[in-house]
Design a protein around this nucleic acid. Structure first.
Lengths: 360, 360
DNA sequence: TACGCGTGCTAAGCCGATTTAGCACCCCCG
DNA sequence: CGGGGGTGCTAAATCGGCTTAGCACGCGTA
């Protein structure tokens, strides 16, 4: 619409120089190629007054770079949980002068193919394959056309691609340590365990959370006081499991729930059996689901760092692009999961006090 | 990375023809320009076997079109409420072979300028200016470079741009009609009114909802039984207003809340004063906020059609782009707000029954 | 006078596709 | 044998910017 864009040729003509000269001046190579100060000034002023902006498409045709990245997600952009991931990615891209194509596959292979082709046809400088939930995923073909990074996902089979994922192993360690520090020795697991690899199929997070937990418990000379490897991690599952571990002869006093929805069910079970959180039952969990802040008391949980994940993926990818890296490596970048301390774990003092009261 | 892309020249060379020939064949103009069937077949097979895909950037340089749209939102992409808007836009874009640049401004003018320039520099075919909440917004400069459409927003001052917004006027009408149909004659308004324009400043939706409501009430020979023009539409405001209208000599029996958060407060007020919804107090509202489905009984409300809004904006923009429209008009496209009938309004039968019981 | 050299700028090719004018060839007819 | 006309394809320009080889000019020196 409206007026034609001002091109470099327009600027050159108006300034009375050759297009090549204008290009050199405006790309900062004026001194290097001995363009006089007077001409440089004239070109710059002309460009300014005409409102010249270089056509990136054209630059890209020649240089092979488009200052553009493509983000292909399964369903990330639309879901609240991971919307922050997109936001982090957008921010980081913007800071580096990249623009982001975004596409959603809804898990459909053909849609993924179409999006990927569309992005590659538009000469994106890099591709981000994002997932809503941390998972392993197969890699589509054609990724040799542009640097690629996996966001919240790991390659299903070894591939020379970097990945950015939450540091679930570390979160598992810290969850266990948190309960140990609060004075608990008998720690139940809800969702996975008791042995490494005892997790529902297909979950990446579960494996690592469990590994971290077991590492710390064993380091303290402990085993889980109990563990339920549940195939589904929804509130009703948590409720059932909660009833179970609270009804036994030695009712649970501390539990690590493998996600917040399980914890939500555990809260209900505690409430129904007259237990108070955290006095009678300490709960720590993972995800920082929106509901975690709404529970009474607030749920202490390790958050999935969506924003940081998105940001980091773009940072790494942009760097690879800028360095013109041809060779990628299968590195895994783990992003710390921040602890949201709310009220579902009491401090050691409180636990101590309770033990004393119980002893009276 | 990896292998260089196959170009048209590669195909031409492999097929033993000139690039021009290959181009004609592959763009379907082979017959028109009398390329023999044999050559056409050869070119097509060669392209196929080499996996040739045209470089859209290059096509764009020549044709001026990039098959790309830019969506600039204030904070839409990241927020759950309006994530569906993005999703609808992505879907519609994909169906039409467009890819979407997405950017968020966080309400910052400079960021908006940067994003817009970045998109225009990349030769987007069209621009979508999206807003999280329906509002009027000033227009940045430079929109004459590409067809533009406003999504969930209206231009602050008259401009030759189409807009896509929810049909709040119609929803207002239907909300009033819904209560009339249920047998109510004394209808309270919570949030705006009683006279046209009695709304908190800066709200677009309020004006139209109110106009629609008043139109229907007056058509039935009625005025609102009461109306509170509230400057804030949060749950506490709804709670206070609810206490007020339920405490009067003739307590309210039906209320139209100007949004779901107000309605949420009204529920609380009803509960505390021993009123049942919908038997003692019928409530209808707007937005279909996630909490609307969680209330007991479920809140009957008119949903903001985010998905349809996003889809429609892209449809209109893509059409304008395809038709090469130079001239835009200041049309406003109103998208119907679907009624989510839950349980907060009783049918006329039930209301009738209640009246009879009361008369006994 | 002729040559070398530094200075300041430009011509021209390139990226990958599209498009148009027109070339080369053959056939047919007078 | 020459000209008209159709057929089948291609050369070359174009989009907008980048890049490199090299031109023109003036000055100093032998």
């Amino acid at each position: 619409m409206g007026r034609r864009r001002i091109t470099l040729a327009d600027v050159a003509r108006a300034a009375g120089v050759a297009p090549a000269t204008a290009s050199l001046v405006l790309s900062g190579r004026g001194d290097e190629l001995r363009i006089s100060e007077a001409v440089q000034l004239r070109v710059r002023e002309t460009a300014e007054s005409l409102g010249y902006r270089p056509n990136i498409v054209s630059q890209g045709l020649r240089s092979g770079s488009s200052r553009t990245l493509g983000l292909v997600s399964d369903t990330v952009a639309t879901s609240q949980l991971a919307g922050d991931m997109i936001k982090g990615a957008l921010e980081a891209a913007n800071e580096r002068g990249f623009l982001l194509f975004i596409g959603e596959t809804e898990g459909d292979k053909a849609a993924e193919r179409r999006l990927l082709d569309g992005m590659l046809d538009r000469q994106v400088d890099g591709i981000i394959l994002a997932s809503m939930f941390t998972r392993t995923r197969p890699l589509p073909a054609g990724l040799d056309q542009a640097p690629t990074i996996l966001l919240n996902a790991l390659p299903a089979r070894p591939a020379p691609l970097p990945s950015v994922v939450p540091d679930e192993l570390d979160a598992g360690r810290r969850a266990a340590q948190l309960l140990l520090d609060a004075g608990h020795r008998r720690i139940h697991l809800m969702g996975a365990g008791p042995r490494p690899g005892d997790v529902p199929p297909g979950t990446v997070a579960g494996v690592e959370r469990l590994a971290g937990i077991l590492e710390v418990l064993r380091g303290a000379g402990l085993e889980p006081a109990g563990a339920l490897n549940l195939s589904s991690w929804e509130p009703p599952d948590g409720w059932r499991a909660g009833r179970e571990i609270l009804a036994s002869e030695e009712p649970a006093e501390a539990v690590i729930c493998f996600n917040d929805r399980l914890a939500f069910g555990a809260y209900q079970a505690a409430q129904e059996t007259g237990r108070r959180v955290p006095e009678d039952l300490a709960i720590v969990s993972f995800d920082d689901h929106p509901l975690a802040a709404w529970l009474r008391p607030g749920l202490t949980t390790f958050a999935i760092p969506h924003h940081a994940l998105g940001r980091r993926a773009v940072e790494l990818l942009a760097e690879a692009v800028s360095n013109g890296e041809q060779q990628r490596e299968a590195s895994v970048h783990r992003i710390a999961m921040p602890l949201r301390e709310r009220g579902s774990v009491a401090s050691a003092d409180q636990v101590q006090g309770r033990a004393e009261r119980a002893a009276q």
